[in-house]
Design a protein around this nucleic acid. Structure first.
Lengths: 158, 158
DNA sequence: GGATTGGTACTCGGATATTACGTGTCCGAGTATTCTAGG
DNA sequence: CCTAGAATACTCGGACACGTAATATCCGAGTACCAATCC
């Protein structure tokens, strides 16, 4: 059970894009340089976020990425699912219906207790991530960092 | 983000062991046959659970596995951590301290908002799994299954 | 001087190698049993 | 008949291959800009 590091990159970049002037875009080189990330690999995750509808990509000169929606309308879960995929981490294999202790299918209309429990835990995790937006993240920056990053990203914007 | 299928196997086997007569052990062949699982691979996970102190292994003739503690004292989280490892799925790389937008270390005494959020979500997930024990799982069996499985495991026990 | 058209430089998008981890399997270490031999 | 001993069969434990997904990287597709040219 390991979460891709791309999630951290994507969240930091989304928070940074939230500080860019409205309508302006930031190149992936600018995003990668701000956090010293490998440009080519970061591109893969930015691409996934664009495909998921979290970011909007503009090609050509003066192109780059911008948030597809206002920061307050993008939840952390949106970014996580964009990068990790929407598939749940646990999928019940229904092993209770196999082997010498097989339970007849007519007794398996309800999901087994283990599946239900895992689904509930996953729901708690996702709810926790859904409750926070990108706008909340920048609001929780240390004092002064918001202004400084906004200035830096404004120089990199085009 | 994918959870090992061994978690499902381990939880089902733990629930089955909870129905075994007190003090008796069940061979891994018996556990695997009950759910039609590959014996050799299941052994790997049972071994991990034994190492984590969830199961107690007995070698030699009439050996096998039994729960190391009463079913009510073993949480689902214990089994999950025994198989998946106790490491959290998200580890902050502190990329905010790197690159052209690097934040000075003295401003990073507190974990960044992303790290705090991920830790909180992971806590919610673990709390959800910690709230349920193996005893709860067998209590949620469909009517009659508990008695039937108890009878089956009693025959396989030694 | 203004509009048009072709070229050019710049950006992202998808396809391609490399590495790490989960998956699957095997043989060796250790123990209770059991059979045999001696008293 | 009882006891001591060694052989034996059975169980788990750790070490060894394989497949899939995350990691890391490259080159091609598409667009806006710019310059040269024509009207």
């Amino acid at each position: 059970m390991k979460l891709s590091q791309g999630v951290e990159w994507g969240l930091h970049c989304a928070a940074l894009l939230a500080l860019a002037p409205p309508g302006m875009t930031v190149r992936r080189e600018g995003l990668a340089g701000h956090y010293a990330l490998p440009v080519t690999y970061l591109a893969k995750h930015l691409q996934a976020m664009a495909r998921a509808g979290v970011l909007h990509a503009v090609t050509g000169p003066r192109g780059g990425y911008r948030l597809a929606r206002p920061p307050g309308d993008i939840t952390v879960l949106d970014v996580v699912e964009a990068i990790e995929g929407p598939a749940p981490p646990f999928v019940c294999q229904e092993i209770r219906q196999r082997g010498t202790g097989a339970v007849p299918p007519e007794s398996c209309r309800r999901p087994c207790a283990i599946d239900a429990l895992m689904t509930q835990a996953d729901r708690a995790w996702r709810d926790s991530l859904r409750a926070v937006t990108i706008a909340d993240l920048v609001d929780r920056y240390p004092p002064g960092l918001r202004e400084r990053n906004a200035e830096l990203v404004a120089k990199a914007a085009s």
